[in-house]
Nucleic acid binder design. Structure first.
Length: 831
DNA sequence: AAGTTGGAAGTTTTT
DNA sequence: CTTCCAACTT
């Protein structure tokens, strides 16, 4: 460090200020290949920013620097920090996928894509894939679409093109992939679309096949930095290599111990083999951890030491010893959630921490349910970072699909999504016919429609609907693309999308209108933030490539909940990791091979090392699975981690935490009783119980009989059956309260007067020849061809979708669409 | 055409 | 306990 300061001019002082020796070394090496092995919390982002600042200061033009990150969030933060350090300089930083998307907009013609291509998200790609699957009439009953789709994804990530794919022996999906992969890829190109994997695949192919272009881009991006290099796959590796051949000023940062995307084709060998790929590489190790307490690091260290496929690496603590890492056992996820929420509530009210200091991690998104419920009940604000967010909702996908179709008329997936949304009476039959025509002519669905309208008879009854739809799209194509919000408003107006929802007047449609409002606001915000580089195409690219993690706002004072995958790169003072159970953390589907288990262990390692001050590892004795309560043994990882830093949460604390709930009367909830098991432990356990118990009882742990039979679960089961106010009513009773009460009273009436039935029957036969049909009225009597006579109980719905509820003598209550049903009015109440 | 219902099936992680 | 899909209803 001192040497470094002597060597560099005084201008450098600011850039090197406060860096340790290794960090300074990593910053100062800007020419030639460099590998930065950065443990968790070692100031990696800082090194990257300062290194870029140093390059700029050394006269490297900003446009020749390329920073590739894993998430948009990381890229944005990088950009932000560079701006702070070197104001006024613009360095391109973004994800691989975004970078590739930009290249393909320019050079996609090499592989048959025009510059307005669409990026399909997972949903759309799957939709297109199953169409191809259906068309190919796959006979094999033994492979699933999902297996084949994921095998194709693997092939793409491994840079295997459709024509080169050969089934490997022992791979049941292989033969089907051989057949489907080329068809799927052909269809994608026909639709002028790419899936996520294609962004990488096509870019790699273009760079491989166009030496002149490769040289130009290699020179253009003379300085490249790749973050999270341990998570790059073969395609990404190939792209990076192509761009750093003549100008091998490539710096990669990463940590083999944090490689958690092997299932997506990430090859940990890329970072382990970096020294082999690039001769004369300089290696810098950042081993000082500035984030976590010594105890937390001790636990992390002991865990990861169990991995065999790794380079041993130290984590040197610089923080205080800290509080013990806690291990908490609960009888059920409900109890676990209640315990966590009440503890967080107490810590907040005591002023120890703020909501935003807490994070709760889990292996899979569904594990957040109970937590959400209890945090809501406790009034703790939280933010969920999960997979089913804004852009997944139907109305949002519909509107985005309109935009995609406007930009790329060949996008058949978008066409299918919107052609009957809002409802235009264009159904399966019509769509099948359009598909046949498209297959025959090789044209896109929209083109087929346009052509067929020359002879409307070929479209049958749907011709006029299609005519209208095509006219709407054509009208929308004339709207200028520079203002996204205006385009969206035009879509809403031209298609009457919002108007139809407004007319519906149900709870769901008003929620959808709210979401649409939110989308309009977001679009306006995008327009504002991108006055130069915005517009419809840029917006669609952003919409396709944003992830939910990117939206995470650390400034908002909320508890954060997310998967451990999403937690990568983040840090929080207090961390809870839930569901540390065998079958969940190592996940049962990742327990086949040692390699898989090691990746699970790295995932746990990532979770643990996010914690700065306090860490609690939680597991349940059992949980509901497939409708029944099942026992859950604690994760084998927990046993690997046992040691002096670890402390079991003692039942006395458990009781104390619940005291709060017991004093508060909440309707609908019973204060949970400490389970029998907790009491037993309280008596015979003691402070030294925990570690010894786990170490000496492998057999008990492995067969999950640590609990004392089912007694401890009993109170939970009843809690489980209590109605859950956060979810809607179960199917089957999903009727409005009014119509339900109506039905009860009517039923009572009906049963009092049994003779009414015969009377009604007689009246019905008397009026059976067709008179003018009077309007339906509540209380009126009607005749149904199958069910016989009945009484009108309620009228509901909207003018567009009127419903009628009838109580029949023969079969009880029934509900029909009033404009479709075959009901004859016998009498009205006032007659 | 479109909504409702019953039965079978299934629970990873994400650019 | 949920979610998806095919069959059935109007």
């Amino acid at each position: 460090m001192d040497d470094a300061n002597d060597f560099f001019s005084s201008n450098d002082a600011e850039i090197f200020l406060g860096l340790n020796a290794q960090q300074a070394q990593a910053v100062s090496v800007i020419d030639g290949p460099l590998m930065i092995l950065a443990g968790p919390g070692s100031g990696k982002t800082r090194v990257i920013t300062h290194r870029i600042a140093y390059m700029l200061q050394q006269g490297v033009p900003a446009e020749r620097i390329l920073a590739l990150t894993f998430t948009n969030k990381a890229a944005n933060e990088l950009g932000h920090r560079i701006q702070r350090l070197v104001p006024g300089q613009f360095v391109w930083a973004g994800t691989f996928h975004r970078f590739c998307s930009r290249l393909l907009r320019q050079y996609g013609t090499f592989v048959g894509l025009s510059d307005n291509f669409s990026i399909l998200d997972m949903d759309d790609a799957t939709k297109l894939f199953s169409q191809v699957w259906d068309e190919a009439k796959v006979q094999d009953d033994f492979v699933s679409t999902a297996a084949v789709q994921s095998e194709i994804s693997n092939a793409k990530n491994a840079l295997i093109r459709p024509e080169d794919y050969r089934a490997r022996v022992g791979n049941p999906a292989g033969k089907v992939v051989e057949k489907i992969y080329p068809l799927y890829q052909k269809k994608l190109v026909q639709c002028n679309s790419v899936d996520f994997d294609d962004l990488l695949l096509w870019t790699a192919i273009i760079l491989q096949e166009n030496e002149e272009l490769r040289e130009r881009l290699d020179e253009r991006f003379a300085y490249i930095m790749v973050d999270e290099y341990q998570d790059t796959n073969l395609a990404q590796y190939a792209i990076v290599r192509s761009l750093s051949n003549d100008y091998p000023n490539l710096a990669v940062t990463g940590d083999p111990d944090q490689s958690i995307y092997g299932w997506r084709g990430a090859n940990i060998g890329n970072i382990l083999g970096f020294e082999r790929d690039y001769p004369n590489v300089q290696v810098v190790r950042l081993e000082q951890n500035y984030r976590s307490t010594q105890k937390i690091l001790g636990v992390a260290d002991r865990l990861i030491a169990n991995n065999r496929l790794r380079k041993p690496k130290r984590l040197i603590a610089t923080q205080e010893v800290g509080q013990p890492v806690r291990m908490k056992s609960s009888s059920s996820p409900q109890d676990e959630a209640l315990w966590i929420s009440s503890e967080i509530k107490n810590l907040i009210s005591e002023g120890v921490w703020e909501p935003k200091d807490f994070a709760i991690f889990y292996r899979a998104n569904w594990l957040s349910r109970n937590l959400e419920h209890e945090l809501t009940a406790a009034g703790i604000p939280y933010q969920l970072v999960n997979g089913f967010e804004f852009y997944q909702r139907k109305e949002i996908k519909d509107l985005i699909a309109y935009l995609r179709l406007i930009v790329n008329p060949k996008n058949d997936v978008a066409f299918e999504r919107v052609v009957n949304s809002p409802a235009r009476k264009i159904g399966k039959v019509t769509l099948d016919r359009l598909h046949d025509m498209a297959r025959a002519s090789g044209a896109s669905l929209l083109e087929v429609c346009q052509n067929a309208l020359q002879q409307p008879s070929s479209l049958g009854r749907a011709a006029s609907s299609i005519q209208k739809f095509v006219a709407q799209i054509q009208q929308l194509q004339t709207v200028p693309w520079n203002n996204v919000r205006k385009v969206l408003e035009s879509v809403l107006e031209v298609t009457s999308y919002a108007k139809i929802l407004e007319a519906d007047q149900t709870e769901m449609s008003s929620e959808r209108l709210g979401n649409i409002d939110e989308l309009l606001t977001a679009a306006a915000e995008f327009d504002k933030q991108h006055p130069e580089d915005g517009g419809l195409e840029a917006y669609l690219e952003t919409a396709a490539l944003v992830s939910d993690t990117d939206k995470l706002d650390g400034d908002v004072n909320h508890v954060k909940m997310m998967t451990m995958h999403a937690a990568k790169g983040l840090e929080f003072p207090c961390v809870y990791i839930v569901g540390v159970e065998e079958g969940i953390l190592p996940h049962e589907r990742s327990s086949k091979s040692e390699k898989d288990v090691e990746e699970e262990r790295r995932l746990f390692f990532v979770g643990i090392t996010r914690a700065q001050k306090e860490l609690t590892l939680c597991h349940c004795e059992g949980r509901m699975r497939r409708g029944t309560f099942a026992m859950c043994p604690p994760s084998s990882f927990l046993m690997e981690v046992l040691g002096p830093e670890l402390e079991r949460v003692r039942p006395s604390e458990y009781k104390k935490s619940f005291g709060h709930w017991q004093n508060e009367s909440r309707s609908g909830f019973r204060p949970p009783k400490p389970t029998e098991r907790d009491w037993v432990e309280d008596e015979c356990g003691g402070s030294s119980f925990d570690i010894a118990d786990y170490e000496d009882n492998d057999d008990r742990l492995s067969n999950g009989s640590l609990t004392k039979g089912n007694e401890s679960a009993a109170p939970k089961v009843s809690r489980n059956q209590a109605p859950d106010p956060s979810r809607g009513p179960a199917r089957g009773i999903r009727e409005s309260a009014t119509s339900f009460s109506n039905r009860i009273s009517t039923a009572a009436e009906m049963f009092e007067d049994q003779d009414l039935a015969t009377e009604l029957g007689e009246k019905a036969s008397a009026t059976s020849d067709g008179h003018e049909q009077p309007a339906f009225c509540v209380g009126g009597l009607v005749q149904h061809p199958e069910y016989g006579p009945g009484k009108i109980v309620a009228l509901s719905g909207s003018p567009a979708k009127p419903y009628i509820s009838v109580y029949f003598f023969s079969v009880g209550p029934k509900k029909f669409r009033a404009d479709f049903c075959d009901l004859r009015v016998i009498s009205n109440p006032r007659n």
